[in-house]
Amino acid sequence: MLEITVSLRNEVIDRAVRQTRRQLDKLASMPLSGEIRLPYVTNNGRYMLEDKWSSGFFIGLLYRLSQLTGDPLYMEEADRWIGGIEPYKKQGDYQDIGFLFYYSYAFGYDLTGKEAYRTIALEAADSLFDSRLPGGYLECNWLPEGKRYAGVDSMMNIRLWLWAYRITGEERYRAAAIESAQITSAALMREDGFTYEYMRMDSLTGAPEQPYNKNAKFSSASVWARGHTWALYGAVQMYVLGHEEEWRTKVERLSAFYLAHVCSDGVPAWDLMLSHQETAMRDASAAAIACSAFYQFAAALSPDDPLRQQFRQEAERVLDVLISAEYAPPGPEHEGLLVHASTPLHVVQAAGESQIWGDYFLLEALYYSLEVGS
């Protein structure tokens, strides 16, 4: 069984190499312009190239392939395409610069030590302060009245501040991340593990007023699967920061709710509350995010902690599902790596499509699984 699992994981890496080289060839063939467009989501199996909040994940995918294969090509290609993200570094009212710059410049600095990457990532981290409202949460400027809403995406975007604190030791980054995480989690995470996608807030005090769903709209009781795993992943990063019991408890609650609301194969429907319907569209990207979070949480626990083995086993179980034939591309013409990633529904309205963040987190989970085995 172990040999089969290792073989499947190697197949996924080999497939990622083939798919990524095709994308790089496609990008290289595009006419040069002032705006660099990178893979976003597939349409009929072909990656649409867009300038989006998600562009950093393609750069991060190149870095993960470099780690998984040892091939310097992917470092070189990341350096070739990363400049398309740099113009966002001063757009501080756009909290998704956390997504854009952590997985590109910050991650790139960690791997290469390039001072130019460090400088740009820290400029972006400083700009992120412009998204912070007096109530302590981050502005969601893509929503009407975005200053009145806290969003679950914040739990991921503050990772740029956590990185900046690790690199510089400056307390202002750590304090901002903690404040935002505490206010966001208090507003969006219930004690039973249920999460809201957005919460209307008092912008001065940070007091929660009214929940709101944008991507999961099946009912007022909807739970957006990917948003829930954003919250889980972010809570894990907060636990890694200080190993505080508060965040350990939140990780456990969010994980328990998630695992109680996935489909029979362990992958959730796009709305967690629909996972009992086996015909509901899946979101494999959410499962990949959760899988990586499980690995990282397990690694942060002491060897004698019973939760360590429990979370590691769950990560292994989910990864085995995600690398199975069910979630593999149907043929060589499909440009994604992980299929059945179905949200946002206004963009991806059919089963069998891929998203660049789903592909990235699958490789991240693979990387952590190999770290565990080494």
Rank of each mutant, 00 (worst) to 15 (best):
Y102I: 14
Y102W: 15
Y102C: 09
Y103G: 11
A106I: 12
F107I: 05
F107L: 13
G108R: 05
Y109M: 03
L111V: 07
T119F: 03
A121Y: 07
A124M: 06
A124K: 10
D126Y: 09
L128H: 08
S131L: 04
P134L: 08
G136T: 13
C140I: 14
W142T: 12
E145M: 03
E145Q: 11
G146T: 02
K147P: 01
R148D: 05
A150S: 15
G151Q: 07
G151Y: 04
D153R: 12
M155W: 08
L160I: 05
L160N: 06
A164P: 07
Y165T: 09
R166N: 09
G169T: 13
G169H: 08
G169S: 09
E170I: 11
E171I: 13
E171G: 12
R172W: 09
R174H: 14
R174Y: 10
A175W: 08
E179C: 12
A181T: 12
A181L: 04
Q182R: 15
L188R: 07
R190N: 04
E191C: 02
D192P: 01
T195L: 00
T195C: 03
E197F: 05
M199N: 06
M199R: 11
D202Q: 08
D202T: 09
L204M: 12
G206D: 06
P208I: 05
K214D: 09
N215Y: 14
A216P: 01
A216N: 06
A221Q: 04
S222G: 01
